[in-house]
Structure formats: structure tokens, C-alpha cells
Design a protein around this nucleic acid. Structure first.
Lengths: 362, 362
DNA sequence: TTGAAAGCGCTAACAA
DNA sequence: TTGTTAGCGCTTTCAA
């Protein structure tokens, strides 16, 4: 059951005759598995001409082209991607690579990036194949590459000394990363986290805050290092302006109890502002503060270096940096298609960000 | 830049000679783009023989086969999927279709199902192409189907009168749905929600609860109708046993304020147990109860027809039904590959569930 | 047990 | 402007 239709081949005297036309009066109203040969036969022209009409490459008479295009339109012809792929050495697929650990996979960030990638791919009739990296295990990616299942790859995030980047560089497949890396010659699409975090931190300090705690995530992730660097650079800048700020930084925090403990410490030490590197950490911190009936912003201010739905229902609204992951995905895919088409692409692209100043730091 | 290697074709006197061997001393240690012809040449046998050694089909000498397999192993040969696909009329890809509205995409449920699908696909050297349905808009799915980019499709959830199921049935592409449907002849993988919800409801009633409110989601989703049916059937059963239970059902609830209002009503009406159809609704309800300082289970008991991380941090722990989405994904993919290989597959598969009785209904 | 050759559906170089 | 033909890398039929 469920076999695709195949044009019947009829055999007489050991000679193969292809049955003319196509056999389907289909339910979808589309002729299935029509080939350019069928079209050529129907219009009394050659395959080449049909191919030219479709691709737009090579000279072809205006009238002939229209005849072909009309016919194709009417019959709902779609080229066979396998055949095209074989002839062009292309798959018309790209890969989207994202972390497989559920704590990351489920972050809206990656979902949105992926949507952007899919959207952009659809525009050029490409599809998106998905694979996950589970910790160190990138067998999925390796399979896809060595099987030559895609024309390019988008890496959803970057690690410090990223083994996947190293692998992709060697693999000779075009790729783009969402995020930043020190690795040279890698096409990167990112937000300028250093600048954004510096800006937000400086704004808070300018508001008079003189004691800040920064709660940060896994240092293996480039983005977390960038956020830290932005924060530190703000503190440094202020110092140069003779504004001295007491600050502490706590990295590699990844669960609610660690966060709660830090929040306790902060309150105990008279910290006036807690900045969290991402939405999840911030949600943990807010949770803890609410449980303890601490008033925000009266008792302590709170800000997040990444905004998301997780923070949307909080009262008061949370000051945060806002990015557009959908656009990151779209842009990365756009760059990748340029690469695939052999165009030059600049290495670094920074997308804009917004600083949302809300009640939590009033 | 970044173009794939192509074997150089050298032309003398108008005759094309393919340059022997392959040109790469590659960084990956794998010979790239080796073909069966190259292997045949190297071993002084024919393409056909090589093909036979690889596929295992057709007669071939033990020794020849081993020579070929050894060579392939050493050189890291991987067949070109485009060429194989063209010859076999296969793509070696399947599609995973899930709702694109962010409120759904981001549910852990779909992520896990997808992981299961990807895992199972990897086992048979297939890859997973992803597409999303945005409300009524299934152009992505249509593109994939009419472009013949996949050998089969897995639909991540079912709707009442699902237009995607109708579309796929007409399309002649094998497909499996995760969820249930009234549509005949559709391969379905699901949990028995009716039975599970009936069971949990009956257990709660047996514990002495005589007034229950059910808060449910979108009735366009088959799963929500099933959960409702299970609940109703429990009430009915109890009635037949002369246990009369006061109950109310509220469907199509999809945000926190609607939920909060219902919780208010429940408390006002002396409802003793609030059951939510899914994790998100339950999280909304718990939020509201905590804000109002209502004691669980003393003042009101709470249960959920779907367990997830969203409920894990609640105190007390929440009574809920538990499923294994990863296994749903794996199973659905397994069925799909059977279909693709022309095997018979039974239409209905129900995976097990667990009833977790926790503190929230003590 | 092995090989020659045709075919999958498309592109592109060359000829007309 | 159009057609002929070879080729992409694999499978499969038929013959040896």
C-alpha cells in the first residue's frame, strides 16, 4: 500500500517502451510524477527546452517558454528534487542543529530561531532537516554530513572551543552559526551581547545603584561569557568616571536552588540590584523573591539580560534586554543561502537589540 | 568558496576521461565523494558487484563481498543519497509536522515527541525534516508533499475534522499521526486518554470527593475531547453505582485570567477538587491558588490530566497522569518506517500511562 | 558468481 | 532559438 505511482513500463520483444502521457486522474487534481520528458512529448519540443523554460537559464523563445510554463501550471508539474539534486550536486535541504538536552531544546529562543530558519528556507524552496547535539554527542550531525544530506548547516548556538564548529570547518560544507566564536572565518549572526549588557548595566548604575550581583549561566556558552564581559566593561567604565560600584559575579548557575541561595546572599549583603543573565535564571530569582515576600523594586531591583514569556506575567514588569530570535534565524538562513550560491558573505552580523526599562528597576 | 569537491573531468580530443581514483587527501580522514565506480575500478570488478556487496541483494561470492566491504570501511565510503534516491524513488527523509503557534511549539510535549522521532529515524539512516502548521496555514506541508521531499509524514497532533489528515490521505504519502482521529484507515499512535482520565477521576471520587470542576482546553483538539469523555464517563459510572457527584466542565480555556476566574468560581461554589486538562492550565490554576493563599489539598484539591516540568516544583506535588512523549515519537516513527517498507501496520496503538497520586489530592 | 547496459529525471556542453 | 547527447551515482534486468 501507499506506494508512489510509477509510470508503467511495457515490454515488447525485449524492447522497453515508455507508456505515453501520464496515468493519473488523481484526487488531488495534480498530475503526479510528471517528468520533463512527458512535458516535452506533450508539447512536441525537447527536454532541454523544457528545462530551459523552467530554470530561466539559456536562450529560449518567449512563446515557447510561455507554452511550457502554462502547461506546467495547468498540470501542476513539480520537478523531482532527487533528479535535480543528482544533476546539480545539491540536496535542497539545510540542517538546523540545536542542543538536545531538554533544558535547552525547550527554550523559546531555539524554537523561534528555528521558525525563522524554516520561513527563510521555504522562500527559496529549501527544507530544513533537524538534528540535535546531546552534550558531547554529535553523531546526528556527523551522519548528516557524511551522508551528504544537506547543502549547508546552521548551528543554533556556539560553545567556547566548539567541537561542532571545528568539525564543520573540516567537513567542507557551508555553515553559519547563530552566536559568536573566536574561531576565524566562521560566518556568525548574533546580537551584540557585550554592548547590550554594558549599556543596560550602565543605565542601572546611572540610576544610582551601587551594589549589583550578576547571576550567570554556563561559562561554556560563548553568549554567557559575552554577557559577563559586557557587565564587567560597564563596571570598569564607571570606575574610570570615578563611580565605584560594588559588584559580584556568579557563573555556572543552572537551577532554582542555586539561584535561591544567591538571592539570599544578595539580600544579606545589601545588594541593591540582581541581574540575571537569562530568562530562566531570572524566573528562578523572581520566584524566590516572591516566596520571601521581598518587594521589587523597593527592597531590591531585578533585571534580566534576556527577555521572554517567562517574565511576562511578573508584577512588576521586568527590565530586560530584548532580541528577536526569529530574525536571527531568518538572517542566518539568508547568509547560508548566499554561501551555498557561492556569494561572498561578511563574517560578522550583529542584529539590533532593545533595552526595556520596566518597573522592576524603577 | 565552500563548494563541494567534484571529480575533475579532463577532456582530450573531445572525449571525456574521468580522472582515476579520487583527488582528496582530506582533513577528515575520509575519502570524499567516492563512487561505486571508483571502488569497482580499484578492485577490478564491476559496479554491479559493488552494489550487490553493499545492498546484500543478489548473489555474490563471499570473498568478493568481503573485499568490497573492507575497502569501503577503510575508505569511509558513503553512498550518495541523491543517486540512491533517484534509482529507488526514495528520499530517505521523513517529515515531522507540528503546530507553529508558539504557545504549542514550545510545549515540552512536542519537543520530546520530535526527539523520539529523530532517534528512531537515525537508527535506519533516515533524517527528519520539520515543518509547521500555523493555524489553518499548512503551505509548508503542502510544499514538502508536492515537491516529494519525504517518504512519509508524522503528524504531531490531531484536530477534530483535521484538514491535514484529509490532505495527507489524498496525497498518497504514507503517514502516521500522534493522537487519535475518527477518520478511518489512519495509523494512530496515542495514549488511551479516555481510559486514563476516567481512571484518575474515579480514583478521586472514590477518595470521597463529591464536587469537581474540570478545566479544559481547545475543543478543536481531539485529545481534549477524549479527556472530557473520560471524565464524563467516570461521573456516569459513579452515578450507576449510586454515587452522585456534582461536576462542571469548562472547555476552551487558554489563558491565565480565564483560569483564575474559574478558580474563583470553584472556591465560591464549594468545589472540592479542580482538575485541569493539561500542565499549563494547571500551572495557571496553581498560580492563582498560591496568590490567594488557598491551601492545597486542605481547601481544595488539584489534579492534572497531563504531567510536565511545569508542575514539578509545586508544593505539594501534583497528582497527574503521566505519559511518555519520547516513546510516542519513537513508536510513531517505527510504524511509519514499516509503512514505507510496505509492511502491514495495525491502525491503533495505545501506549501505557501512569497515574501519579501525589500530595495535591491527599 | 559476475558484468553490461539501461534507466531513474534532471542539467549542461555542444552542435545545428 | 532549439535539439542531441552525455553525465550525475545508484539499482536492476538480463545475459554470460
Amino acid at each position: 500500500m501507499c506506494n508512489r505511482l510509477r509510470r508503467p513500463i511495457v515490454q515488447y520483444n525485449g524492447i522497453l517502451y515508455r507508456k505515453e502521457g501520464n496515468m493519473s486522474g488523481t484526487q488531488t487534481g495534480l498530475s503526479e510524477n510528471l517528468t520533463i520528458q512527458d512535458i516535452a512529448d506533450a508539447l512536441n519540443i525537447s527536454k532541454t527546452t523544457v528545462s530551459r523554460a523552467i530554470s530561466g537559464k539559456g536562450r529560449i523563445g518567449e512563446e515557447t517558454r510561455n507554452r511550457v510554463l502554462d502547461y506546467i501550471e495547468r498540470k501542476g508539474y513539480r520537478p523531482n528534487p532527487m533528479a535535480k539534486g543528482l544533476a546539480n550536486n545539491r540536496t535542497y535541504n539545510i540542517a538546523w542543529v540545536m542542543p538536545g538536552d531538554s533544558s535547552f531544546t525547550e527554550l523559546p529562543f531555539f524554537q523561534r530561531c528555528m521558525s525563522g530558519v524554516i520561513e527563510e528556507a521555504g522562500n527559496v524552496d529549501y527544507d530544513v532537516l533537524i538534528t540535535m547535539i546531546y552534550g558531547q554527542d554529535n553523531t546526528g550531525l556527523k551522519r548528516i554530513i557524511s551522508n551528504r544530506k544537506v547543502d549547508g548547516v546552521i548551528l543554533g548556538r556556539t560553545l567556547v572551543n566548539d567541537p561542532n564548529i571545528a568539525f564543520l570547518k573540516k567537513s567542507d560544507v557551508p555553515f553559519v552559526v547563530i552566536g559568536s566564536t573566536d574561531e576565524p572565518d566562521v560566518i556568525q549572526v548574533d546580537n551584540d551581547h557585550i554592548k547590550a549588557c554594558r549599556e543596560l548595566t550602565e543605565i542601572l548604575i546611572m540610576k544610582g545603584i551601587r551594589s549589583i550581583m550578576l547571576i550567570g549561566g554556563d561559562e561554556a556558552h560563548v553568549v554567557n561569557r559575552s554577557r559577563r564581559a559586557g557587565f564587567e566593561s560597564a563596571i570598569e567604565n564607571m570606575k574610570n568616571m570615578n563611580i565605584s560600584v560594588k559588584s559580584s559575579i556568579h557563573m555556572n548557575i543552572d537551577n532554582d536552588s542555586m539561584t535561591a541561595r544567591l538571592v539570599d546572599d544578595a539580600l544579606h549583603d545589601g545588594v541593591k540590584c540582581i541581574i540575571c543573565m537569562d530568562d530562566l535564571l531570572c524566573a528562578y530569582a523572581l520566584d524566590k523573591l516572591h516566596r520571601d515576600n521581598i518587594d521589587i523594586p523597593e527592597d531590591v531591583r531585578v533585571a534580566s539580560f534576556y527577555n521572554s514569556e517567562l517574565l511576562h506575567n511578573n508584577v512588576p514588569a521586568v527590565t530586560a534586554l530584548q532580541y528577536d530570535p526569529l530574525e536571527l534565524g531568518r538572517t542566518a538562513a539568508g547568509k547560508l543561502f548566499s554561501l551555498i550560491n557561492g556569494e561572498e558573505v561578511n563574517t560578522l552580523t550583529n542584529l539590533p537589540y532593545e533595552v526595556l526599562l520596566k518597573g522592576s528597576t524603577q
